[in-house]
Amino acid sequence: MDSRFSASIIFEMAKSTKSKKRAVPLDALEAQLQDQLAFLERSIAAFDEGYDDEFKRLAVTLRVLLHDTSRSHSLLKQINMKDGDFFAYSSPISGTNLLPDWPLAIVRIGSDGIKLLPTLDKAVTSRRSLSFDDWWSEKVYRDPAAEISLDRKTIVLAVANKDGGAHVDPEIDEGYAHLVNSGAGLVAITAEGEVLLDDLEKVSLRHIAFEALMSIKPAAAKRLGNRGCECGSGLKHRYCCGKKRMPLPTFP
């Protein structure tokens, strides 16, 4: 058989077996948004209860909501919700400090010792409103001695794509590895000796998730709440089925 004819048959067979695709309706995408925000809230609650390995699931949910590539689109982009303000609850990095700068975390000294916690709404500066691109690409970790700086996007994708979120990779980004291994660069003196304050990557993810939730959830609640409920009750979504899935947010 002619090789060109054989190749043509194989190509036609491949086309015929390729699964067909259909567009996902808007209301189904909005239901996915509600699910992803619920995942974010549950992982945040679990993290705060001491299950700090939830930072990996936080990263995966953030990737689904926020990350765009040439081959895939974030959920927010699919429903045209990336044009709103994104809130930064951390101080901007000055770029002049000689020591590591990590505004997404704070140090707490308590009865259980010294540990790092996410900054959340405890920053000394006021909340800042940024475009998504500026928020996503803003530097939130800097170690001048190691000449390393990381933005929110790099931290989220390193965890989601390579450090156990959705995949475990045999190699990880050098900058992220430095964040994990050297972190804040602080050593606490305890009865047991010197202890390196670690888990900066975990509390940083927790803080980024907080910022994302506080940025997205109010807009989602407004968007979903003002339309008619899909159950056909004649009520607005927020006063009907939306009460079960999308309560209006409370701000700290």
Rank of each mutant, 00 (worst) to 15 (best):
G193E: 11
A145L: 04
I148P: 00
H167N: 11
D151Q: 09
A212D: 12
R152M: 05
G185Q: 07
H167D: 03
T154M: 04
R152F: 08
D198E: 13
A146I: 04
E174I: 04
V180D: 06
R206T: 03
E174G: 15
A166Y: 06
S149F: 06
E192N: 12
S215G: 09
D198P: 02
A212G: 06
K162S: 15
R206E: 04
A184R: 14
I148K: 04
L186I: 15
E174F: 07
A184Q: 05
H167Q: 12
D198T: 14
A209Q: 07
L197P: 14
A184V: 14
T190Q: 03
D151K: 07
L186R: 12
S182I: 11
I155A: 06
L179F: 04
I155D: 11
L205W: 12
L197A: 05
L150H: 03
L196Y: 00
H178I: 09
A160S: 11
G175E: 07
T154Q: 11
L200W: 06
D198V: 08
V187F: 07
E174K: 12
K202L: 10
L205C: 08
I172K: 14
T190E: 15
H178L: 13
E192M: 09
V159S: 05
A166D: 09
H207Q: 10
M214D: 02
K153V: 03
G164Y: 05
G175Q: 02
S215W: 03
E201V: 01
G183S: 05
S215K: 09
L157V: 03
A209Y: 01
E194T: 10
D198F: 01
E147K: 08
E171G: 03
N181C: 08
R152K: 09
V159A: 04
S215H: 02
A177D: 13
V180W: 07
G185P: 02
L179D: 01
A191G: 09
E171N: 12
E211I: 05
S182A: 10
N161V: 03
K153I: 05
D163C: 13
E211C: 06
S149D: 15
A191D: 12
A184W: 06
A177H: 08
K153R: 15
N161S: 09
V187H: 01
A166S: 15
L186T: 09
L196D: 04
E201Q: 15
L213C: 02
V195S: 07
V187W: 06
D198Q: 10
S204G: 12
A184P: 01
H178K: 07
L200R: 13
E147G: 01
A212H: 03
K162A: 15
G185A: 09
S204A: 09
I208K: 00
G175A: 05
S204M: 07
S182P: 00
V195Q: 15
I189F: 08
G165K: 05
A177L: 13
E147N: 11
V195I: 14
Y176K: 07
H207A: 05
A184M: 13
A145S: 08
P170C: 01
V156W: 09
R206M: 06
L150K: 06
A212S: 11
D163Y: 13
A212M: 03
V159L: 08
G165N: 10
V195G: 00
Y176E: 13
V180M: 09
L197H: 12
E174L: 14
A146E: 04
L150D: 01
S149A: 14
L179V: 06
D163P: 08
F210D: 02
I189Q: 15
